[in-house]
């Protein structure tokens, strides 16, 4: 009987050990598959986001081109016709002359507005002269009246990939607009720094700040901030909000491993 019990127990034990090993192996395999699936989903989400942003930029470019080539041209032709009309009515009817002059000034304003919108839609400076020049232009354009925007950047800024330049520029644009429109800031500093293996962009303002949690909870608000996070997720970037209601804000963008192509000397502003 002892032998039967020993053999039976041994068989049962082998089966038990096999079950334990199988459960451990199968569970680990499932976990690995789950992780791989998550990675794939994350990669797909990033690709989708990148495609969306790219489509957005294409659409901006198309609108800018249409505004410049079609609306701008039409307005220029209209201005020429108005000038001709002005010359014919100039001597006969003083009332009409006044009306033509008024229309001409409205037309000039419209033409300059169309040019401005067209330029804002596509940052041509960024494409031609790089991120630092584009940020300088942004600071210059945003500075008006009591609002003073300053750019500060380190001496050596590596030439970054075009999509990275565009992302950083759009984020700086969004944060500067937010500081002016929503925080009523009068002093804004855009700071661009490079450290080995990372690029840091920060926008500091002296506005009245905001409650980040409150804004992110409300789905109708904080679209710009969510957009920043979405843009950063594509380039593996990270945003830190040092914000609170009643004080100035400091928002830091960190992009790791930006893969610089070449180092160029840039004057410190």
């Amino acid at each position: 009987m002892k032998l039967y019990i020993a053999v039976g127990t041994a068989v049962l034990l082998v089966m038990a050990i096999f079950i334990i090993v199988f459960v451990a192996y199968y569970q680990q395999k499932q976990i690995r598959q789950q992780l791989a699936l998550k990675e794939l989903q994350e990669k797909y989400r990033k690709e989708l986001m990148a495609a969306t942003l790219q489509a957005q930029e294409h659409e901006r470019r198309r609108i800018a081109q249409d505004l410049h080539d079609e609306i701008g041209t039409m307005l220029s032709v209209t201005k020429l016709s108005l000038n001709q009309l002005g010359r014919t009515v100039e001597h006969n009817d003083p009332g009409s002359t006044m009306l033509v002059q008024k229309t001409r000034s409205l037309l000039d304003e419209t033409i300059s507005n169309v040019r401005r919108i067209s330029r804002d839609l596509v940052p041509t400076t960024l494409e031609r002269f790089g991120l630092v020049s584009a940020l300088e232009e942004l600071a210059e354009k945003a500075s008006h009246g009591e609002v003073h925007v300053e750019l500060s950047c380190s001496e050596k800024i590596p030439v970054l990939a075009p999509h990275l330049n565009l992302t950083l520029y759009r984020i700086a644009q969004e944060l500067t607009n937010n500081a002016i429109k929503h925080a009523n800031a009068s002093n804004i500093v855009i700071d661009l720094h490079c450290r080995p293996g990372e690029v840091l962009l920060s926008v500091v303002d002296d506005g009245h700040g905001f409650d980040l949690d409150e804004i992110l909870k409300d789905k109708r608000r904080g679209l710009g901030l969510r957009n920043i996070e979405s843009r950063l997720s594509v380039i593996d970037g990270h945003v830190t909000f040092d914000v609170a209601r009643g004080r100035g804000s400091r928002i830091i963008i960190q992009v790791k491993n930006p893969r610089p192509e070449v180092q160029v000397e840039v004057e410190t502003v």
């Binding site: 039967y4 019990i5 039976g8 127990t9 049962l12 034990l13 089966m15 038990a16 050990i17 079950i19 334990i20 459960v23 451990a24 569970q27 680990q28 499932q30 976990i31 789950q34």
Partner: peptide, 27 residues
């Protein structure tokens, strides 16, 4: 699939111990 690392999950080893103990003394 709540447990990511089964080998460091205490309850898995308890179950392994219970299984060995129960099968070993069953007959």
């Amino acid at each position: 699939m709540r447990v990511t690392n089964l080998f460091s999950h205490a309850m898995f080893w308890v179950s392994a111990g219970v299984l060995i103990y129960a099968t070993g003394t069953l007959f």
